[in-house]
């Protein structure tokens, strides 16, 4: 659990990192704006969209594999093995989906639609893969007691849940700049 002192330390580090960034990439970075932390409902909708994407892809793949296996008529042992492989692949796919998106762009497709972004609380950069994996595991644990683990988001000043504190992340608003019109 973080303390107020740790929060202040995060703030100082964030300002220093931002100042260094501004000096190094002067003229290339978009002008920084005050962040807006996103709440439970917005993040829940984004997560629901991601879950729908994950399950839709998994459904299409499993139906395709099931149809192929029905033609081959495998034995009972082979079916059990296929189920185990399928379950493992589903777990890898789910974990990989979040970890890869959080570690590369900071946005899953659901986050992109809701215009929110997961980033490090210290400097605003994307999470490292290890932190992303940690965040995902903590998120699963928060979901176990009927999602009660996410309730601290409602009362935290930066709208952070336990998984955010553990991974040192925040979820902020990331509005998309309007595209320039065609000439």
């Amino acid at each position: 659990m973080s303390t107020p002192a740790r929060d202040r330390g995060d703030l100082v580090a964030a300002r220093q990192a931002h100042a260094v960034n501004a000096r190094v990439h002067a003229g290339t970075l978009t002008e920084a704006t005050a962040p807006v932390y996103e709440g439970l409902v917005t993040r829940g909708i984004a997560f629901a969209i991601d879950s729908a994407v994950i399950n839709l892809v998994a459904l299409v793949v499993s139906v395709s594999v099931g149809l192929a296996l029905s033609v081959l008529d495998p034995s009972a042992n082979a079916e059990t093995l296929a189920l185990a492989v399928g379950a493992f692949a589903y777990a890898v796919w789910s974990v990989g989906y979040f970890v890869v998106f959080w570690s590369t762009t900071g946005q899953t497709p659901g986050d992109r639609l809701l215009q929110i972004r997961v980033c490090r609380a210290s400097d605003g950069n994307v999470l490292r893969p290890r932190k992303s994996l940690l965040r995902f595991g903590a998120m699963m644990l928060c979901a176990l007691p009927l999602f009660a683990g996410f309730l601290p988001i409602l009362v935290d000043n930066r709208r952070r849940g336990p998984h955010d504190r553990l991974a040192g992340s925040v979820v902020v608003s990331a509005p998309v700049e309007p595209r320039p019109g065609r000439a």
């Binding site: 703030l11 990192a17 009362v155 925040v170």
Partner: peptide, 26 residues
């Protein structure tokens, strides 16, 4: 939801949020 939760827990309403990391557009 946050107003309701803070009222239920007798916490002060969320005031000015602390500044966070620099964030650009997505």
């Amino acid at each position: 939801l946050e107003r309701v939760a803070r009222r239920a827990l007798r916490r002060k309403p969320a005031g000015e949020l602390p500044p966070g990391p620099p964030v650009g557009p997505a």
